[in-house]
Design a protein around this nucleic acid. Structure first.
Length: 706
DNA sequence: TATCCTCGAGTTCC
DNA sequence: CTCGAGGATA
């Protein structure tokens, strides 16, 4: 059958044969290109064949093969990329929304470092590009891989695609043996417009903004598509590195430039906060003419030694901040207010809006937080939005906080319908048939209806399989809802007994459900089996105990180390008992949390359920993160008195980075007491317990050993 | 007791 | 991303 016979003239039979033939050729070519890295046909031919395939499918949709090459591209990029763990986490940044926030940020840093507030501090500023972060790793000057930010810990391997970006060199000269360059992949305005013109002409989906276009292009499974997309890259930071690039941020960025990376031309250094803000205003003014999207400025402490001292908080460095430009606003009408039930029973109001475009995205829902937020006055009498309440029918101003979460920021009273009435939270709950209760001093209403409630049960299950908990592939929100509706999975235990009940034997019931076949069913059972081993901290988190998130679950796991220890202690932990004290001794756990943690273990029904669940699992002991071989790793340290060389906050951060636990009070479990000047009762207590006591000088020399 | 900091929980759209 | 609340600290 001739390839050049035009699609319009093909008979149905010819088309069927041609589709089969094309499928074979395209699949072979994909394998050759991706898996063997040796293309067997040239790009132009490949593209021509693919377009032809598409055209035939368009004309004879009924003939479309189940595994069409047109679908494969773009349909599975999620599975298509290998996951790679970042050696050094890719963190996000704290935000400043006005000059005051920036001042606070600089003052906080100076206090942390005990630099007088009036003293100058070198800071650098550069635009914050609205694109995607990428980490590019070089070994002996050769690009070995490029990984997207992902969740900060694990990203996707997009090496083949990154190599096609001109701003990213494949080879760099005189580089350190190991160099991981971090920067932003983005698309310029003119390139974006041109791409959308092309998409329009070829009847393909338009991109809503340059950022989405850049994301879509970088995450193409087919690197040839990425190559044709005009992506750019600005380098602004580094991750793992075998030798420093400089002593300051400025020197390091200059060095990156010498290696051949593009760096932002608006990078500047300033000695004062005013300088930073002036630069911010200048960039804001020229923003429309830059030719690419930015959403603010990033400020960093210039001196790398100071950056090191400042270190990191749980999600962001202390030494950097993003100063955001004001968000785009839009006005629209509030059609209704609905109530949503969360996992913990929190009843949250959600605004249903007349769809409106804000920052290139159509928004039709927005969070309203709680009853007070709607009323316009919080429980302490503080005004929100100048005290304007939000009513159904109102015209409201909407923006996307952090360019993501839609929020209602203002109400146009002049357009308020004459007959509108204030929103009555309780009445709404009654109308919906939801029993709720708002505790004294709390802002949230909570579900107070009969347990077990289907609302809570399903949210509990979603939490259980979520990424930070069991992370079971192929068992997401949709599947949980499907199984819940059938009554197959109503509690977490059911997930692990699913195969026995419905997946094997003569029944094989799962494959009879819509959307499930034998193959997908067995895939699901495999991925469930894979997760039967789970680290203690993840398991505690998965239980969904109120007040216990990822962080606190880790604290608990670190304290009790094994599931047996933990569960025994929780069963025995009545107030004033020894395990109760052990709980409260954990830095970060107080009585509210302690009470919450022991509750499920002291209720027979819940405890039985947990035990039955554990029977299906292997809960792995908590693994101490190897904090190198620091002399204080694993030790519990208490600071007291006034330290001269560093602030308490810095001392604490330093100790924690070296693997020590910093506690507030001396107990028999304390290993070291560091006593600054003016220390009192704690020294006495420490000597009673035989705790090692050292002064600030000893402490400094101890940490400088490492 | 008041204030600061950090974490948990809930949120949207693609 | 934001808000509220819990925990630590002064």
């Amino acid at each position: 059958m001739p390839l050049n016979k035009s699609v319009e003239n093909l008979s149905e039979d010819e088309a069927r044969g041609e589709l089969r033939r094309l499928a074979k050729v395209l699949t072979n070519s994909n394998v050759a290109y991706h898996s063997e890295d040796k293309p067997n046909i040239d790009d132009a031919t490949y593209d021509a064949l693919k377009r032809r395939n598409q055209k035939i499918e368009l004309r004879f949709p009924q003939l479309k093969l189940p595994k069409s090459a047109t679908d494969q591209i773009g349909a599975q990029p999620k599975e298509g990329f290998q996951k790679i763990q970042h050696t050094i986490k890719m963190l996000s940044l704290g935000n400043a929304f006005n000059q005051e926030d920036v001042n606070d940020f600089v003052i906080r840093i100076k206090k942390f470092l005990s630099i007088p507030v009036a003293h100058p501090l070198s800071m650098v500023a550069e635009p914050k590009i609205d694109g995607l972060s990428l980490a590019v790793r070089y070994e002996k000057g050769k690009l070995v891989h490029a990984v997207t930010r992902g969740d900060g810990e694990i990203g996707e391997d997009v090496t083949a695609n990154a190599k096609s970006i001109d701003d990213i060199p494949i080879t760099i000269f005189d580089a350190p043996d190991l160099l991981e360059v971090r920067g932003e992949v983005y698309m310029g305005h003119s390139e974006f417009t041109a791409l959308n013109d092309f998409q329009l002409n070829s009847k393909q989906k338009l991109f809503s903004n340059p950022r989405n276009a850049a994301a879509g292009s970088l995450r193409q499974l087919d690197a040839r598509i990425t190559r044709d997309r005009p992506l750019k890259f600005y380098a602004y930071a580094w991750g793992s590195i075998s030798s420093p690039l400089g002593r300051t941020q400025t020197e390091s960025v200059n060095q990156l430039k010498k290696f051949g990376f593009s760096v932002n031309p608006l990078f500047r250094r300033f000695e004062t906060t005013d300088g930073l803000v002036e630069h911010y205003k200048y960039v804001e003014k020229i923003r429309p003419d830059l030719g690419y999207d930015i959403d603010g400025m990033v400020y960093k402490v210039d001196d790398l030694a100071l950056q090191e001292r400042l270190g990191f908080r749980s999600t962001a460095p202390r030494w950097a901040i993003a100063h955001k430009f004001p968000a785009e606003m839009a006005w629209t009408q509030l059609i209704d207010i609905d109530i949503q039930v969360g996992r913990t029973g929190a009843l949250s109001p959600v605004a249903r809006l007349k769809p409106v475009t804000v920052g290139g995205v159509v928004v039709s829902n927005a969070t309203l937080h709680n009853e007070d937020y709607i009323r316009g006055v919080d429980s302490k009498g503080h005004k929100i939005r100048d005290g304007k309440d939000i009513r159904i029918g109102d015209y409201v101003q909407v923006y996307r906080a952090g360019d993501v979460i839609p929020k209602v920021s203002d109400v146009d009273l002049s357009r308020r319908p004459k007959d509108s009435i204030p929103f009555d939270f309780l009445k709404k709950l009654e109308a919906e048939g939801i029993e709720g209760h708002r505790a004294d001093g709390d802002a949230v209403w909570r579900y107070s209806g009969k347990q077990p409630s289907p609302y809570l049960a399903i949210e509990t299950l979603k939490h259980f399989v979520s990424r930070q908990a069991f992370d079971i592939e192929g068992l997401g929100t949709k599947q949980i809802e499907q199984f819940f509706d059938r009554g197959w999975i109503t509690i977490p235990l059911d997930i692990f007994t699913l195969k026995n009940k419905y997946g094997s034997g003569q029944a094989l019931q799962l494959k009879n459900i819509e959307g499930w076949g034998t193959k997908s069913a067995s895939n699901l059972f495999d991925s469930i089996d894979q997760k039967r081993e789970i680290p203690l901290n993840r398991f505690i988190f998965a239980l969904g105990i109120r007040h216990v998130g990822e962080g606190s679950a880790k604290l608990l796991a670190a304290q009790f180390l094994t599931w047996n220890n933990f569960t025994r202690a929780m069963v025995e932990a009545v107030p004033e008992s020894e395990p109760w004290e052990a709980l409260l001794n954990i830095d970060g756990i107080g009585d509210v949390m302690a009470k919450s943690v022991i509750e499920p273990f002291q209720d027979v029904a819940q405890l039985n359920e947990i035990n039955a669940l554990v029977d299906q699992l292997v809960v792995l002991p908590f693994e101490q993160i190897n904090k190198a071989n620091s002399p204080i790793a694993g030790q519990t340290i208490v600071f007291t008195g006034t330290l001269e060389k560093m602030t308490r906050a810095e001392a604490k951060a330093r100790a924690e980075r070296l693997g020590a636990k910093v506690s507030g009070s001396v107990s028999p479990k304390t290993n070291i007491l560091i006593a600054g000047s003016g220390a009192g009762s704690k020294i006495k207590k420490a000597s009673e317990f035989g705790v090692r006591i050292m002064d600030e000088e000893d402490w400094i020399s101890l940490i400088e050993e490492t």
